[in-house]
Design a protein around this nucleic acid. Structure first.
Length: 856
RNA sequence: GCCCGGGUGGCGAAAUGGUAGACGCUGGGGACUUAAAAUCCCCUGACCGCAAGGUCGUGCGGGUUCGAGCCCCGCCCCGGGCACCA
């Protein structure tokens, strides 16, 4: 039943149809269907306390239009939503108020859900879940165990930000100007035990498989740059003091070996100690200390002014036996390559700058184009001053020298990546606990005998207090491992998470066969399978839950697997993934990594998770600035829904400009789309609420209107497919203007138009559809088809140009020859004067478009 | 510094190498109304002209082409990403 309002009363219409959809579960996606499937996904929202901001509905409206359009096109559409609900803000709130983060998270989800429902999106709410649901994170933990057993997870001491005042570990984004964001306290680097995932093992595939996905080029390039593959060679330099062994360096330019005049070690390099001679020890120690105190940020800030100290030692250049001084400088990073380089100042900007500062020789070994004598020279060229190789093009020399070094067993071609392994743990409460128990060596050996298939080839170990501990995973049957309740959400003073403060959860008797656990404070249970263990106190980062949620949507209630093989086969991966460009690297790279691991396990059928990706742009405030509370330019979806309705909001968000563009909000412009919807209403419904009498089944509407309808069907369909919603809306406005001018219109025409508008303004169109006498709902009607024969005109406007200048135009029959067109041009009173008395040099004729007469 | 993306009316924006400014907003004029709102009609890039019409015009300077907002070269400005990766 439609409402009975007389004018366009969105306050009645929108809630009415929202409950209609809700009651009928109109958007439920069936896991078995003969229809082709279409999976369209929004990036997982974090339910923050601030509620929805206007950027959320922008992307969500786009995917909702696609979802509704694809349903009308006969697809079985999966359009789900859920909550990325672990995370820092809830934990900070808990620290402040003492309430459990779950309480706050649940309240935020309720609010987000209310807001999202008010926008009328066609989500399948039966598939909703949150990453904090034990039924969900059970599988997050399960996937971690798969990574663990394949040797892709390990433990290492890593430097993290520690704030002594707050007694907590802080994420990078919580540090502002070297101080804690909260309170402005000093922070320091501290080495803490961390879980690390071996994403670098997938570097090559993460890079090469980018060619198979339909993503924005900029995003692909960002991932490529992040992975940062470079081909070069590792070369061993003998040390002058032979008993110290050799020095291994990485270079991408082995061809410049003859130009190497010094070596540089990172201050943290293990050989620094041994290579520093007595005379230089004091200076080196001071330098090392200074470098260690610098944060990454400071180290890069000071990049402009290079610094270093001489170690006092020398290496021997393997190609010419030259004695090369070894320097220590922090422009070389321990984390990349081998932490040591051969410096070739003539052909590297950084080495050049350094060599100039410390007056080191800068011999040229690559010749550029004649006359280009400027150094450093990093361009193409041939070798000089390199006995035995002079005249070779550098890429050839690179191969030749690498091969010769390899033959002498002092070098080999290698590939290096900038990509680092993924620091996967947080010293926090509000995250997935690791399903890991630390045990001693003999207990590990015992468990290994029974559970070898769940353990990595090489055990994950960690030395603490002189004891070597072994990481024993819980059996998957014991998942989920839930978070215990804690007294305080502050971390323990040692830098461990608050979980370290719960002795009965932490110190346990573990049954290694079942995963059952009892507090260690109780007597050891009977049976051989019980071990003494301490649980892992780290929790997983927020990325973990968002790494695989798109798979759980396929089969969210499945108790036996993260998704059934049937569901995985039928739905596959999202056909379209829409979200902000801020996730271009981290989320999208991490999810690809996990997906590939699952693919290697045979757990998912395809190697890439997101075949087509699109980034919506940012919506700025009316002042053209980024929306923010402090600027006071924030637009709330709630307020717009109250004042103009969600159909107007949706339509306006899409009409603003191209989806991918950054664009300012405007309260004046929204009136335009509101007027458009009111006009559509008036064309269909009289002031008394009846059907507009100009609409009838047998109306002899103008043929131009019919033609325009078919053009509109085509354009709106094409534009939706290409996510060009702004021009689709323009076209519908053009049609509505024509409809208004037409004295009569056929019911079929009006109905087809209502259908075109339905994905954009679903509430209004449901109402009109029923008022026009159709059975609800417009969502069930198949998408209108355009008739190509209606699109062909018999007459077209031909533009006349003389010497490239527009001199007139005229309607002409289609299929004109050039000669006929010339004749018409000569006869055209506007064109003729420009042709009079000129000789024609050339005529360019594009049928149906243009006739350009080129004169002398 | 390097890598991307973008500069079009008063504003948001349209334009397979083929009439630049569709559509919308704003502004001006008119119709309807006792009046207002709403609605409808006309105009709305700049300059010249009574008009017909003409000239100029897509950040700047060149180029290719019968024809360039679109392609090429060199600049300027704005936005985003990366940050000594050997």
């Amino acid at each position: 039943m439609a409402t009975n309002c007389k004018d366009y009363d969105f306050r009645q219409i929108e809630p009415h149809w929202q409950s209609f959809w809700e009651e009928r579960k109109s958007f439920r996606a069936d896991n078995s269907s003969a229809k082709p499937k279409y999976y369209v996904l929004d990036m997982f929202p974090y339910p923050s306390g601030a509620g929805l901001h206007i950027g959320h509905p922008e992307g969500y409206t786009a995917t909702d239009i696609i979802a509704r359009y694809k349903r009308a096109k006969g697809f079985n559409v999966l359009h789900p939503i859920g909550w990325d609900a672990f995370g820092l803000p809830a934990e900070q709130h808990a620290v402040k108020t003492g309430t459990h983060p779950a309480t706050n998270t649940a309240a935020n989800i309720t609010n987000f859900k209310r807001q999202i429902k008010a926008l009328g999106f066609s989500y399948d709410w039966e598939r909703e879940f949150a990453t904090t649901d034990p039924d969900y994170f059970r599988w997050t933990q399960w996937i971690f165990l798969q990574l663990f057993s394949r040797g892709l997870a390990y433990v290492d001491e890593r430097p993290v930000w520690w704030c002594p005042e707050l007694r907590t570990v802080l994420a990078n984004e919580e540090i502002v100007d070297g101080k804690s964001e909260v309170g402005g306290f000093p922070v320091e680097r501290r080495n803490l035990r961390q879980w690390v995932l071996r994403i670098t093992a997938y570097a090559e595939r993460l890079l090469s498989d980018l060619k198979d996905v339909d993503w924005p080029d900029s995003t692909k390039r960002m991932q490529e740059a992040w992975i940062g593959r470079s081909e070069g060679a590792e070369i061993l330099f003998a040390l002058e003091d032979a008993k110290l062994g050799t020095l291994k360096i990485f270079t991408t330019r082995p061809d410049t070996l003859f130009g190497c005049t010094y070596m540089v070690l990172a201050p943290e390099h293990p050989l620094v100690e041994a290579l520093t001679t007595v005379d230089h020890r004091a200076a080196v120690d001071v330098y090392k200390k200074k470098a260690a105190a610098k944060s990454d940020l400071e180290r890069t800030d000071l990049a402009k002014d290079k610094s270093g100290v001489f170690s006092g030692s020398y290496a021997i250049n393997p190609v010419n036996g030259a004695r090369v001084p070894i320097w220590i400088a922090d422009y070389v990073l321990m984390g990349y390559g081998t932490g040591a380089i051969m410096a070739v100042p003539a052909h590297d900007e950084r080495d050049f700058e350094f060599a100039q500062k410390y007056s080191l020789p800068i011999p040229r070994v690559i010749a550029g184009p004649a006359g280009d004598e400027k150094l450093p020279y990093t361009g193409d060229g041939t070798l000089i001053n390199s006995p035995g190789y002079d005249g070779l093009a550098w890429p050839d020399a690179k191969k030749k020298i690498t091969n010769e070094l390899a033959a002498r067993d002092i070098g080999k071609a290698t590939v290096n990546y900038k990509l680092r392994d993924w620091l996967f743990s947080r010293q926090r409460y509000w995250g997935e606990p690791f399903p890991i128990v630390w045990v001693d060596e003999s207990d590990y050996a015992k468990a290994k005998a029974a559970r070898s298939n769940t353990l990595p080839e090489n055990p994950v170990t960690f030395a603490e207090g002189g004891k070597k501990l072994f990481a024993l995973p819980l059996p998957s049957g014991a998942l989920p491992l839930q978070l215990p309740d804690v007294q305080s959400y502050l971390p323990s003073g040692t830098g461990e998470s608050p979980l370290a403060n719960v002795p009965d959860w932490l110190e346990i008797w573990l049954n290694y066969e079942t995963g059952a656990a009892l507090p260690a404070s109780q007597p050891k249970p009977a049976g051989d399978a019980w071990l003494r263990g301490r649980r892992e106190t780290n929790t997983m980062p927020q990325w973990a839950g968002s790494c695989w949620y798109y798979l759980r949507f396929l089969d969210p209630k499945n108790p036996d697997a993260f998704a059934s093989p049937e569901a995985l086969k039928y739905w596959g991966v999202p056909d379209l993934y829409v979200g902000g460009a801020e996730h271009a690297v981290l989320h999208l790279l991490y999810a690809r990594f996990w997906h590939k691991v699952l693919f290697d396990l045979g757990a998912v059928p395809q190697a890439e998770p997101f075949t087509k990706l699109f980034h919506q742009g940012i919506i700025l405030g009316e002042d053209g600035e980024k929306m923010s509370k402090s600027r006071g330019n924030v637009v709330s979806p709630d307020a717009i829904i109250a004042s103009h309705g969600t159909d107007t909001l949706r339509l306006y968000l899409m009409f603003l400009g191209p989806l991918e563009a950054m664009k300012p909000w405007s309260m004046k412009q929204i009136e335009g789309v509101f007027r458009f919807l009111q006009k559509v209403w008036r064309e269909c419904v009289t002031a008394e609420g009846g059907v507009n009498p100009k609409i009838s089944a047998d109306a002899a509407e103008p043929t131009e209107l019919t033609k325009l309808l078919h053009e509109t069907i085509k354009k709106v369909g094409d534009d939706i497919e290409a996510l060009r919603f702004n021009t689709a809306i323009s076209q519908m406005m053009i049609f509505t203007n024509a409809l208004q001018k037409a004295p009569v219109a056929s019911r079929a025409t009006v109905l087809a138009f209502v259908q075109l508008l339905a994905p954009f303004a679903p509430h209004l169109t449901e109402e009109l559809w029923e008022r026009l006498g159709e059975k609800p709902s417009v969502q069930n009607a198949p998408w209108p088809k355009f008739d190509p024969t209606r699109l062909t005109a018999t007459e077209v406007k031909l533009v006349f140009q003389v010497d490239g200048k527009h001199r007139g135009d005229q309607l002409v029959p289609v299929g004109l020859t050039q000669d006929q067109a010339m004749e018409i041009a000569r006869a055209n009173p506007r064109v003729a004067p420009f042709l009079a008395g000129r000789s024609i040099r050339r005529v360019v004729f594009v049928p149906g478009k243009i006739l350009n007469v080129v004169t002398q």
